[in-house]
């Protein structure tokens, strides 16, 4: 497989859970701690799929997604949003920002991997 996934989450626990689930499925993982950091590591990481949290310090998930979409190279890179809350308004906002899909926390490792595969296939 060798898909490369960039995870952006300010919670160490979430980062570790994602790391465990994703590396367990054979993905390569690059981590960032917030939106700002995510944009910083993006060029070096060159991810195939991005998973991001919404509520983060410095730059939130919406800002991050918009930032990614502004970068020519990552305009079509699938971005999955990972958040505890997902009402219709949030989904719409995420979609408008440029998100590909979402995963509700707490996530199930298998479903997560399936979702990543689904958007990246």
């Amino acid at each position: 497989m060798g898909l490369k996934v960039l995870t952006v989450d300010d919670s160490r626990v979430m980062r570790e859970m994602l790391l465990m689930a994703l590396t367990g499925a054979g993905f390569e993982v690059v981590q960032a701690e917030d939106g700002q950091h995510g944009l910083e590591v993006l060029p070096g990481a060159a991810p195939d799929v991005i998973i991001t949290d919404i509520n983060m310090p410095r730059m939130d998930g919406f800002g991050f997604i918009e930032g990614v979409r502004r970068t020519e190279r990552y305009r079509g890179t699938p971005i999955l949003v990972l958040s505890t809350e997902f009402d219709a308004a949030k989904k719409t906002r995420a979609r408008e920002a440029g998100a590909t899909g979402w995963i509700v926390k707490p996530f199930d490792a298998e479903k997560l991997v399936a979702a990543v595969n689904r958007v990246a296939a």
């Binding site: 980062r15 790391l19 367990g24 690059v30 707490p106 199930d108």
Partner: peptide
């Protein structure tokens, strides 16, 4: 939830190291 956790646990035995290294670089 617990089952999900178990699944994740089993899934974690893979090539975790590369991920950890990258995390360290970040």
């Amino acid at each position: 939830l617990k089952l999900a956790a178990e699944g994740a646990k089993e899934a974690a035995t893979g090539n975790k190291d590369s991920g950890v290294e990258r995390a360290a670089q970040a």
